[in-house]
Amino acid sequence: MKAYSQDFRERVLRAVDLGRPRAEIVQLFGISLATLKRYSKQQREKGHVRPRAIPGRLPKKQAQLEAGLTPQLQEHNDATLEHHCAMWEQTHGERVSRWTMSRAIKRLGWTRKKSRSGQWSAMRKSEPPGERRREAFQRMHWCFLMKPAPILP
């Protein structure tokens, strides 16, 4: 859930400063009493009501991966995620999971599309002798493509 804007937080505290009852402020702004108390405490102790940073570890591989991945994608756009991970480990000496690679490719704006450039292969349907055989079909595989930039008016 996204944090309330700083402007909204300041308007809530302005209503408190004007002497309005807390129950009325909670009803008017659609916030909980605990949120109102937290804003008041933060204003009193820190002097501001800016939203706090979302907790969690900072990404370690993201910046390096996104910086060096584009040339690899352009050169090997038909490689699978596993192949991209193996190529990255071979060239950079750092192991990357399939999921990390997938998120990095998505952040760079590349999409996965089916490609019909695979080889033809014949498949036999398991049918009694003398029956019609299944026609050969073209095998599909995935490739990565760069999304076109949106056209702005």
Rank of each mutant, 00 (worst) to 15 (best):
R9T: 00
R9K: 06
R9D: 00
E10H: 00
E10Q: 04
E10P: 03
R11T: 08
R11A: 13
V12L: 04
V12M: 08
L13V: 03
L13C: 07
R14L: 13
R14S: 14
R14K: 13
R14H: 14
A15V: 06
V16D: 05
V16E: 09
V16C: 00
D17M: 09
D17S: 11
L18F: 08
G19D: 11
G19L: 12
G19H: 11
G19K: 10
G19E: 13
G19C: 09
R20I: 04
R20W: 10
P21W: 07
P21H: 13
R22E: 14
R22I: 07
R22T: 10
A23P: 01
E24V: 12
I25E: 01
I25C: 06
I25N: 06
V26H: 03
V26M: 07
V26A: 11
Q27G: 15
Q27S: 15
Q27C: 12
Q27R: 15
Q27W: 12
Q27H: 15
L28Q: 11
L28V: 07
L28C: 05
L28Y: 11
L28F: 10
L28M: 07
F29V: 03
F29I: 05
F29R: 03
F29P: 08
F29W: 10
F29L: 10
G30F: 03
G30C: 09
G30L: 10
G30I: 01
G30V: 03
I31R: 01
I31N: 03
I31G: 03
S32F: 01
S32K: 00
L33G: 06
L33T: 10
L33A: 12
A34Y: 08
A34M: 03
A34D: 11
A34L: 04
A34R: 15
A34K: 15
T35A: 13
T35D: 05
T35H: 12
L36S: 01
L36G: 07
L36A: 04
L36F: 00
K37A: 14
K37I: 10
K37R: 15
R38C: 09
R38A: 14
R38E: 06
Y39P: 01
Y39N: 01
Y39S: 00
S40W: 02
S40A: 13
S40V: 04
S40Q: 15
S40M: 08
K41R: 14
Q42D: 00
Q42M: 02
Q43Y: 01
Q43A: 14
Q43F: 02
R44S: 09
E45Y: 02
E45I: 08
K46C: 04
K46N: 06
K46G: 03
K46Q: 11
G47A: 02
G47P: 12
G47L: 08
H48G: 03
H48N: 00
V49E: 01
V49A: 00
R50E: 01
R50W: 04
R50F: 12
R50M: 04
P51A: 15
P51R: 02
P51G: 05
A53C: 09
I54C: 08
I54T: 14
P55R: 10
P55M: 05
P55T: 10
P55F: 02
R57D: 09
R57C: 10
L58N: 14
L58M: 13
L58A: 15
L58T: 13
P59E: 03
P59G: 09
K60A: 14
K60W: 00
K60P: 07
K61M: 11
K61W: 05
